[in-house]
């Protein structure tokens, strides 16, 4: 099947990253679709934890919010937010944390707080939610967001959630339990991070996307791996689950 949207490719690529049995801290939007897609394919025993306190969720509809009733019904446990942040997240139980944001810089630092000056905002965004502590505690961070020179600028307006912080990996100075960003999945391709300078490096491009397209849509001269792979396009099965079961009203996948 050739007709799929960039958002569908993003969701599919993110879903493939999840291994059966992993414990995932799920956010709203595309990651939510990705986790529920993975659960229907290679990772039926994926443990979905939402910051609302629902643990081991098996939602039978796609939750619009992370506090949807379908997350509590049939879950393994419902706990208070005191427990989800202290015992589960700070307790080191989360394998994968999904994060998005309005801006990301080359070191994987995320802004979900404000565009412009904090005290005189051009656009006031929702803020951290649980993102700051997820970035610090989850063993591995996967980011899912659309790419443009605006969303990946040279310098972000505000650091809501720390990635590697800078070239010297100042992250290590703070003794964070989590290793930090591992992948960034955009609508052009997939980035990893270099070992020595801790910055984004393009590793995969989507079918039909040229490296120069990617470079034209990012705010700095981004590193590109020697032979970037081409991502396997969504299968019929993946698209069917997304379109028929997960987001038939196309609320998340516009």
């Amino acid at each position: 099947m050739e007709n799929y949207t960039p958002s569908e490719m993003m969701v599919v690529r993110a879903a493939r990253e999840l291994k059966n049995g992993e414990v995932v801290f799920v956010g709203i939007g595309l990651p939510n679709v990705a986790c529920n897609l993975a659960r229907r394919l290679q990772a039926p025993e994926l443990v979905l934890i939402y910051e609302s306190g629902a643990v081991g969720c098996v939602p039978d509809r796609l939750p619009l919010s992370i506090g949807d009733p379908c997350l509590a019904t049939d879950s393994i446990s419902v706990c208070s937010m005191v427990e989800v942040f202290n015992y589960y997240l700070q307790g080191g139980l989360i394998d994968v944390g999904f994060l998005g944001g309005a801006q990301v810089d080359r070191f994987g630092n995320i802004n979900s707080t404000v565009i412009g000056d904090y005290d005189r905002p051009k656009v006031r965004l929702p803020g951290s939610g649980g993102a700051c502590e997820i970035a610090i505690h989850a063993k591995k961070i996967i980011m899912v967001l659309k790419q443009s020179p605006k969303s990946f600028p040279e310098k972000i307006d505000f650091v809501t959630s720390p990635g590697f912080i800078d070239e010297a990996n100042s992250r290590s100075r703070f003794e964070f339990p989590g290793k930090g960003p591992s992948l960034i999945i955009t609508d052009f391709g997939v980035y990893g991070f270099t070992k020595n300078t801790h910055e984004m490096i393009l590793q995969e491009v989507y079918p039909g996307v040229a490296v120069r397209d990617v470079k034209a849509n990012i705010g700095w001269d981004v590193k590109v791996s020697r032979r970037p792979k081409t991502t396997v396009p969504p299968t019929d099965e993946e698209l069917r689950i997304i379109r028929q079961d997960l987001d038939p009203a196309r609320i998340h996948l516009r």
Binding site: E133, V159, T160
Partner: peptide, 10 residues
């Protein structure tokens, strides 16, 4: 006390 906020602008 809690383990968060370091590295953030908050």
């Amino acid at each position: 006390h809690l383990k968060t906020f370091e590295g953030s602008d908050l």
